[in-house]
Amino acid sequence: MTTTRIERRFAALKSASRGGLVTFITAGDPNYELSLDLLRRLPEAGADVIELGMPFTDPMADGPAIQASSLRALRNGMTLKKTLQLVTEFRKGDTETPIILMGYYNPIYSYGVPAFLKDAKAAGVDGLIVVDLPPEEDEELCIPALRAGLNFIRLATPTTDDKRLPTVLRNTSGFVYYVSIAGITGTRSAANADVSAAVGRLKRHTDLPVAVGFGIKTADQAAAIAKVADAAVVGSALVSRIGAHVDERGTASPKAVEDTLALVRELAAGVRRARQ
């Protein structure tokens, strides 16, 4: 079986013995052009894996920063079709950085699962994270996605106990995303000791890489996570940076890209020094 971009990237991180940086931005935030510019420049700024948010009107598991980011994108006419187009454009210049689409099920369901999987694969998407599809609903998208050759990355949380973990891990591939707090994105952060223990627990159940997210905002926090996990995920802090350059009428300043990339560079430096 050929390896996927995600598998290759985590293997490379392992041989470089450093933790990775997974960056989340919302597709089309603040608008299509700036979002594409930002997306293209994330790898050189130090993003190892890119999570690209599919905007949704009702992001129930997300905090205010990502909600606002979704709404900025939607207000500027973002759709799932354009999100896939963004990935197609990105892939013209980058064939190695893994891209994972992250979001909620309804826009995909509305697009039609078979058509979506076909178009996502063709665009160069590597994996999916769909927040409101637990293992109990695997037939909806997870199984078809695996058949289509896409990784389906599952969230494990502090409420996922040892008894349930095998269920959660059963059809997970690529990596496991550990949600370090019971809560929504971009709010509080977990204690390092708790994260370390949780990653250890996950590692007893799976050989997959473990990325940890929720509440990581600074380079130091990212470094602390990268010490104990395979990667740190940062999202709310990045989209907040973008949001800071959007005025009340929704007009974005091009500075949004530079400023966000500056934060990515800091975070990347953080994960790179973590295990030195």
Binding site: M60, A61, Y105, P134, E136, L155, T159, T160, V168
Partner: peptide, 12 residues
């Protein structure tokens, strides 16, 4: 119907 919720809620 169904159970389309985040993993955090699923055990509950």
């Amino acid at each position: 119907g169904g159970r389309f919720v985040a993993e955090t809620l699923m055990p509950l």
